[in-house]
Design a protein around this nucleic acid. Structure first.
Lengths: 208, 208
DNA sequence: CCAAAAGTGTTGCCGGTACACCCATGG
DNA sequence: CCATGGGTGTACCGGCAACACTTTTGG
């Protein structure tokens, strides 16, 4: 009875916090939606397995990835313990692999129900953790392109927190805390003034 | 290669944050100090295993007990994954078992070094988590007798945070937040006015 | 001319911190 | 008479939330 590693990969798509799910090919729960994961290989570290699975599913590396919680087998799996990780990725830089036997897809976190293994509980827990971390860390770096406008950033924050934020207070805070810094002029995007571009001043360590 | 559960059992002894350690009987690291733990039994839940081990070592149950972190085998153990828990107990209500083949003992957290399996890292992490939780939860209930004076409580907090606190501000806060409430008169203890006794208004769920 | 995004300051409140003295009595 | 623990109130400061208008130009 080995150990399994399961990933909660979160991103923001169309102003909605979303999670990567796969349609299970094998029993149990064949045909149902579930979180991606797999068994820990011999001689592999937990972080290594999580990193590998993340790259397998999204092609992404060097993003925020952190251990979330460990469950016992949830009744029905083949593993003795399920170690869950959560990752944050920039949707625009992700290319889901369509050639896998399971079909990965982004699904909004709000209103998820009826997943295999009660995986919605894990997802809710990850979303709570993310909301907390957002308030006292800079995990957001992983959800945005390297350079972005403050309006983009604010929309990501609003999607995660699930509420509108005040523009001036938001800017005061992220600038005042030194979270982000200006990084040059911007290009006009529409019928309005060109925006300033920003980047994060520091990145969190990949594993805390 | 099964799964192991390891416990960081913390308490405050003589105004020092302390941890329960055992002297290992078996190789590897025979004769060295380490955290107590053991293998997960078949059909046992993780929380169940942690609760069982805690009762084995201290005779205590119904205290704060929470999952901490999961490590891979740390190089040298027999287990594939090590799931750590941390628990908080009231020193006065604990009776360590001297009849075990390993000898459990309380050791101050400050200055620990050279433990088996680099266990001091886990202990430091548990101490950090405890300090954080202390500020926004009421985990303290588990470290104190059911009824206590505010001075006792303050000393416990000071031991954990490693700094002196202001008496008036401390009382204002714990009363203002409704953390504790008066629970009757007290008995004289020495050459001074008898103190008021308090208890916690609510207890955290045992597992979060 | 209007929709859409960019940008910009002030005020009030609340929570947290700093800080010092009196009381009672067992020894 | 002093050591020891119990108990109490005020003043300042800083962070956080609330709040509205001007600019630009593509359609």
């Amino acid at each position: 009875m080995p150990v399994a590693v399961v990933l909660v990969i979160l991103t923001v798509v169309q102003e909605q916090l979303s999670v990567l799910l796969i349609e299970r090919a094998a029993e149990p729960y064949a045909g149902e939606w579930a979180l991606p994961g797999g068994l820990l290989l011999p001689e592999e570290t937990l972080d290594g397995a999580a990193t590998r699975k993340l790259a397998d599913e999204t092609g992404v590396s060097d993003v925020f990835l952190e251990q979330l919680f460990t469950f016992d087998r949830l009744g029905e799996g083949r593993a003795e313990a399920i170690i869950t990780y959560f990752a944050l990725v920039d949707f625009a830089r992700t290319r889901l692999r369509g050639d896998l036997e399971w079909r990965p897809a982004w699904q909004p976190v709000r209103g998820l129900e009826g997943l295999a293994f009660h995986n919605e509980e894990i997802i809710r827990y990850a979303a709570v953790r993310l909301r907390n971390k957002l308030e006292y860390t800079n995990v957001g770096y992983s959800l945005l392109p390297p350079r972005f406008t403050l309006t983009q950033m604010q929309k990501v924050y609003e999607a995660i927190l699930g509420e509108k934020l005040d523009k001036r207070n938001f800017r005061k805070r992220v600038l005042g805390l030194g979270l982000v810094k200006e990084t040059g002029q911007a290009v006009r995007q529409g019928p309005f003034r060109p925006a300033m571009l920003y980047e994060f001043t520091r990145r969190e360590p990949m594993i805390l």
